[in-house]
Lab assay of single mutants.
Amino acid sequence: DWREIAKLAEEALKKQQPVTVNGQTFNDPNEIKKLLETAQKAI
C-alpha cells in the first residue's frame, strides 16, 4: 500500500535511517526521497 510506504519513507527521512520496502532496503536519503515522491504520486 503506497500510503504505508509514504509513511515509512517519511519516518526514515526524519530519523535518518534506512527503510525496507517489499524486501528492498533503501539507505540513501536521495533514494528514500525518490521513493516517497513515487508513493505520493501513486496515492
Results as ranks from 00 to 15, higher is better:
N27M: 14
A6W: 11
V21M: 07
Q16V: 08
I5S: 00
T20M: 08
K7S: 10
K41D: 08
T20W: 05
W2S: 02
A9M: 10
R3N: 14
Q24P: 01
N22R: 08
R3D: 11
T38C: 08
P18L: 04
A6G: 04
D28Y: 15
A39T: 03
T38K: 10
A9E: 00
G23W: 03
N30Y: 13
T25Q: 08
A12E: 01
K41F: 07
N27V: 15
A6Y: 15
N27K: 09
L35Y: 02
P29A: 11
T25D: 05
K34F: 10
L8T: 07
K15G: 09
E4S: 09
L36I: 07
L13C: 04
K7H: 10
D28G: 10
K41Y: 09
P18I: 06
A42Y: 15
D28C: 06
A39L: 06
A9K: 00
T38H: 10
Q16R: 14
K14S: 10
V19K: 00
I5L: 07
L8F: 06
K15T: 14
R3E: 14
P18K: 06
Q24F: 15
T38Q: 13
K7W: 13
L35D: 01
T38Y: 02
N27R: 13
F26G: 00
I5E: 01
E11H: 08
A42W: 15
T20L: 07
N30I: 12
V19C: 10
A39G: 02
V21R: 00
V19H: 01
D28F: 13
Q40E: 11
Q16W: 07
I32A: 01
K34S: 12
T38A: 06
F26Q: 02
D1W: 14
K33L: 12
V21T: 03
A6E: 09
A9T: 06
V21H: 05
A6M: 14
K7G: 07
K33N: 05
L8P: 00
I32Y: 00
Q24Y: 12
N30H: 14
V21S: 03
V21Y: 10
L8K: 11
K41L: 15
K7P: 00
D28Q: 08
N22T: 03
E4W: 08
D28H: 11
E37V: 07
K41E: 13
E4P: 01
A6C: 12
W2R: 00
I43H: 05
K33S: 07
A6H: 08
D28V: 04
I5D: 02
I5F: 04
R3Y: 15
P18E: 05
Q40V: 14
E31L: 08
